[in-house]
């Protein structure tokens, strides 16, 4: 079997995979791994979103890949540059956990669920369907999207591997 190159996405980063490449990000906790996929052109993109909303940014210029509300449009832009079409894209999401569930009383500590909500809201506004998600819980995940098949593989330390 030929080992396909893997595109790595860091925290608060995004990337695009084409021509059968896989794209992955490791150690998602409260961060959300959002993937967009165009099945016709077999182009996939992934963002490792850290925070729900760029209105809180105190840096300038800020990293658009970090916030859900700016990462979604930026990822669409990058995919379109690679030849994907927004009307053909579907989305999958993983992550958004609460790593320390016992501490999750206050809103600022509910960051995982808020990241998921923010991504979902943006996607629904743009009209991209979320076809599968594995979000929440209190455990970390590593995810990998295969741009050939659009299958998203999710690995966790506690709950094994699954495919979406």
């Amino acid at each position: 079997m030929i080992q396909q190159p893997i595109v790595k996405v860091a925290m608060a980063d995004l990337g695009v995979a084409v021509r059968g490449e896989c794209i992955r990000t490791t150690g998602l906790g409260s961060c959300v791994g959002l993937t967009l996929y165009d099945a016709v052109r077999k182009i996939g993109g992934m963002a490792h979103v850290m925070l729900p909303d760029s209105s809180i940014a105190r840096e300038f210029p800020f990293n658009r890949a970090k916030y859900a509300d700016t990462a979604v449009p930026l990822l669409i832009e990058e995919l379109e540059k690679a030849g994907a079409r927004v009307e053909r894209m579907n989305a999958k999401m993983a992550g958004g956990a609460q790593m320390f569930a016992s501490l999750a009383q206050s809103d600022s500590l509910r960051i995982g669920p808020r990241n998921v909500e923010s991504c979902a809201l943006l996607l629904s506004r743009i009209g991209i369907p979320v076809v599968a998600e594995d979000t929440g819980g209190n455990y970390g995940r590593t995810i990998e999207l295969d741009s050939e098949t659009g299958i998203l593989t999710i690995r966790s330390a506690q709950n094994g591997t699954k495919e979406l």
């Binding site: 925290m11 608060a12 906790g29 850290m50 840096e59 455990y139 966790s156 330390a157």
Partner: peptide
């Protein structure tokens, strides 16, 4: 200090929790 919380998990997932206060200021 708050009440302690413990996790057995991937270092990336666990430590990201302590970086949120920096998230809005830089990378």
């Amino acid at each position: 200090p708050s009440v302690p919380a413990v996790a057995l998990d991937m270092a990336g997932a666990v430590l990201a929790y302590g970086l949120m206060q920096y998230g809005e200021m830089g990378d």
